[in-house]
Design a protein around this nucleic acid. Structure first.
Lengths: 150, 150
DNA sequence: GGCAATCCGACCGTCCTGGTAGGATATGAG
DNA sequence: CTCATATCCTACCAGGACGGTCGGATTGCC
């Protein structure tokens, strides 16, 4: 499997927040119940989203979380990156601050043949994540709901 | 990291085989030495490639491995699939024999919102792997070699 | 026969993953 | 003020995957 359950849970959580009105915070417990996920574990997941500036929070009674920006302005690449860390198909893909892809095998005789392949794969993944917004997923889940209740 | 070292080693191995003439078999030891990889581990890796029909083998002295088809006719999606198993971004992506994507969360109220996202990611990965042939990687490594020895 | 090689299965330490536990802190309601 | 609710934070833990090793069986050229 390519992504861990942190990504799965985190995306579900974001979709759930996208379905709520941004005016009032939604508690983690409500989301955990709605999605059938362990609350304590969701705390760790949402912490990453908060540190990435994707959601905001209020503590205390009637506190909770809400989207920091409208769902239309949230690209899923940011969500997944916040949850999974850097999206790299292989260990040797370490970005320095100039965003250039480095490869530790470069020093060997010849060029690292796999680099070409992993670069293309990485591009394919990131492109698909960049062109998908949270709003699309929210809309998708709403359409499914209508079909289901019809 | 998205792919394990099995994919890295296996692709390197395939490129190495692609660089050799297909007339005579290449021993694993030669490849292990050239790439600096543990021989015993490579055995497990190449076994997957053999079972997938991508390489052929001859036992005994002067035995070894060679490509089952010309490198031009080997799409990297087949190589990676043989090494890593089915390419699925998430566990719930189980293919039945009709190649339709199933999702275990479908039964819940509403549609599985993450399905749309993972489907796109999977598409991005597979597309990039389908449009890359082993011959391209071999060519790429040859060009690197020329640059290096110049 | 001897050596070189593929084949095969068992084993093993280490790290990551998914999840739990327990508490500290903040805050609205009564 | 107090209590319930909720976020926040850290440590902990069991299980499994991963990367790799080992020993041996088998095959085939010289």
């Amino acid at each position: 499997m390519i992504f861990s359950s942190k990504a799965e849970y985190g995306v579900r959580l974001m979709v759930e927040l996208g379905r709520q009105s941004p005016e009032q915070p939604t508690s983690l417990k409500a989301i955990a119940d709605a999605e059938g996920l362990p609350l304590a574990y969701l705390e760790q997941v949402v912490a990453r989203l908060r540190k990435a500036g994707l959601v905001m929070s209020a503590r205390g009674a009637h506190g909770g979380y809400w989207l920091a920006r409208p769902a239309e302005e949230i690209a899923m690449v940011d969500v997944v990156q916040a949850l999974e860390g850097a999206i790299a198909p292989m260990e040797c893909f370490v970005h320095d601050h100039t965003e250039r892809v480095l490869c530790s095998h470069e020093a060997d005789a010849g060029r690292c043949a796999t680099k070409l392949l992993w670069t293309r794969v990485q591009g394919g993944i990131i492109r698909s994540l960049q062109t998908t917004t949270l709003a699309e997923l929210v809309e998708f889940s709403r359409r499914g709901e209508l079909v289901h209740t019809a």
